[in-house]
Design a protein around this nucleic acid. Structure first.
Lengths: 116, 116
DNA sequence: ACTTGACCTGGAGCGCGCTCCAGATCTGAG
DNA sequence: CTCAGATCTGGAGCGCGCTCCAGGTCAAGT
C-alpha cells in the first residue's frame, strides 16, 4: 500500500504552497493528481518526486512554458533522439545563464578588490 | 571634447531599448543623463559603461531594487568596509544561483545519459 | 516656413508567476 | 449529529520589468 499525502502534507514536504501546487497542476506541470472519493487530492511519493524536479528547474529560472514543454517531451511519445536534443538545448541555455552569472561575479570581484 | 550620443545611438550601442533606458533612469539605476538645451538626453561614454554594468547584473537575474541598492551603495558615502560587505553578500547570492543551475543541469545530464 | 522624424512626458497595458479570496464541500473529532 | 478545519473551484489581484501609446516639442533638410 502506497502512502498517500494530503495537500497540506505535500506542500509541507515539497516546500511549495498549496496554491502553487494547484497552479502547477492546472498548468500541466504536475499530475493530474489522483483524488479521494470526496474530491480531495492525494499525492503519491512519485508526485512528490516530480514536484521536486519541477521546483529544481523553477529554481534554476526555467519558466512555466519551458517546464510544460519539458513535461510534454518526457511524457509523450518521442524518440530518444528528440528527447536528447531537447535536453541538450535546455542544458545549453542553463550554461549561458551560468556564464552571465560568472560575468556579474567578475564585476563584483573587481569592485571588491578595488575597495579592499 | 567628449562625444555625446543620442538616445537612439545609446540604445543601439547598449542593446537596451529606448523605453528601458528611460525606465532605468526613472528608477535611478542610471543617470541622471545630461540634457541638450532642447531637453533631449545626451549619453556620455561613461553613461554607456554604467548601462553596461546594469545590463550585466540584470542578465545575471538581479532585480531592479537590488540594482538601485547597488547604485546607492556605490554612489553615496559609505565606508569601503560597508561596500565590501554588500558586494560580498551579492556575490554569495549569485553563487547560490549558480548552484541551483548546476543542480538542474545535473538532472538534465542524468536524463540525457538515460536516453543516450 | 514647412515637413519629417526623433524625442519628450505621464500614464496605461501586459505577460509572468504566483497569491488571495469567496463561497461551497468534505472530513474527522467529540 | 455537529462543528471546526482542511480542501475544493473559479476568478480576481498583485509585483515585477518592461512596453506601448497619446499628445506635444525639438531639430534638420528643403
Amino acid at each position: 500500500m502506497t502512502t498517500l499525502l494530503t495537500p497540506a502534507a505535500a506542500a509541507d514536504r515539497t516546500g511549495v504552497s498549496l496554491d502553487t501546487l494547484r497552479y502547477y497542476e492546472r498548468e500541466g506541470l504536475i499530475g493530474p493528481i489522483r483524488r479521494s472519493p470526496g474530491g480531495r487530492r492525494e499525492y503519491t511519493e512519485d508526485d512528490l518526486f516530480w514536484i521536486g524536479l519541477v521546483t529544481c528547474f523553477r529554481d534554476a529560472g526555467l519558466g512555466i512554458a519551458d517546464l510544460r514543454e519539458f513535461v510534454a517531451i518526457l511524457r509523450a511519445e518521442h524518440s530518444a533522439q528528440d528527447r536528447v536534443t531537447f535536453l541538450r538545448e535546455r542544458r545549453a541555455t542553463l550554461e549561458q545563464r551560468v556564464a552571465a552569472l560568472r560575468r556579474a561575479m567578475e564585476v563584483l570581484d573587481d569592485k571588491i578588490a578595488y575597495y579592499s
